[in-house]
Design a protein around this nucleic acid. Sequence first.
DNA 1: ACTACTTTAGGTCAAATGACCTAAAACTTC
DNA 2: GAAGTTTTAGGTCATTTGACCTAAAGTAGT
Lengths: 194, 194
Amino acid sequence: MSTGNDNRSLKQKKILDCALKIIRDHGDAGLTMRKIADCAGMRLSNVQYYFQSKDDVLAAMVSTYFGECEAELTQVAHSCESLGRPERTHRLISEVLKHGTELSDMCRVFRELWAISSRNDVVSGEMTTYYESLCRVVSNSIVGTEGSSRQKARVGSLLLPFVEGYSITASSLPMTVEEVADMLTELTLGLMDN
Amino acid sequence: MSTGNDNRSLKQKKILDCALKIIRDHGDAGLTMRKIADCAGMRLSNVQYYFQSKDDVLAAMVSTYFGECEAELTQVAHSCESLGRPERTHRLISEVLKHGTELSDMCRVFRELWAISSRNDVVSGEMTTYYESLCRVVSNSIVGTEGSSRQKARVGSLLLPFVEGYSITASSLPMTVEEVADMLTELTLGLMDN
DNA sequence: ACTACTTTAGGTCAAATGACCTAAAACTTC
DNA sequence: GAAGTTTTAGGTCATTTGACCTAAAGTAGT
């Protein structure tokens, strides 16, 4: 009885993974049910059996993907837990900036999702929720549970925009990733002094 | 002799404006030569007479648009010129953050262009160049010509990523635009003290 | 008014796409 | 192993799209 459901989940996951790959490489315009079927090694009709419409694929894909991204960041934050605040901060910042340095797979996907979210309410909602939890994870990780809510708000409101914007502008900046990470660490720590 | 060329430029501009509108509202996938023709009030064949292919439209559109954006920011920077550094900084930052607060037309367009630039070398190149000059304009405006290149680099490397990222994450942040502008001004001014 | 050049109108064509549909095959369950 | 359910195969169909093509209309320059 389990194999049936497992197989179903597996196929659905496969479809969503393929959709993500295609979106990442060919954008919104390039995502078609047929390409998904090709990539997943199944028939078009079979993809449509699991997801009635293209929009259904998109919605499921986005939801899954944000979940995975949040889990990844939570994991990174957890791995910094034992360090002191300055090292913890620097480590976390370096880690998240790294994604934006070269045009990573994750960056490409997010660029597409930002575009889609301007004209898709479901995606837009998921995105807002995702960033809200991201903001919480980051500020809690750096400020810690003992910090004031004002400190958390300031740290989150500095880091979240910066990190996302860095993934867009990195190649145009007159500083290296390391220099930027150092500067941002310094600024973040400064936010908590006063 | 002038009316002919004027008319030509006018029609081309009209086409590019329409392409921009369509991209902004319907994304890469929604941009078709026929929609452009409809919007511009001409025949498909006529659009194709001025721009042989869809890619040609896109390339011309991007180039024109970046030019307009840069001119706009230069204009804002110029209007702050007479103020002292703290007021100048705060004014410039408030002004550019405002764009990102609500999902403005400009934000929508940029979200699409970020996505397109991941898979289009022409657009990607124009984007990098655009951000490089933006970085110069902003850091020169704030630091001034007398400042060190290190100060300029730090100011540009803080503001450029932040502003672009803010346009993505604004709605998920726990602070108002005004609070964010104040904080960012404070941090930027601090960068030039030491 | 004639000629050469530019611009517009209207249409064709092959390829791609999302949504449907039907029947066969593969499974559970009893 | 029979009946019922889930999954897969294969196909159709209307629409849309970019690219082309040809002829007509418009616009100088002489």
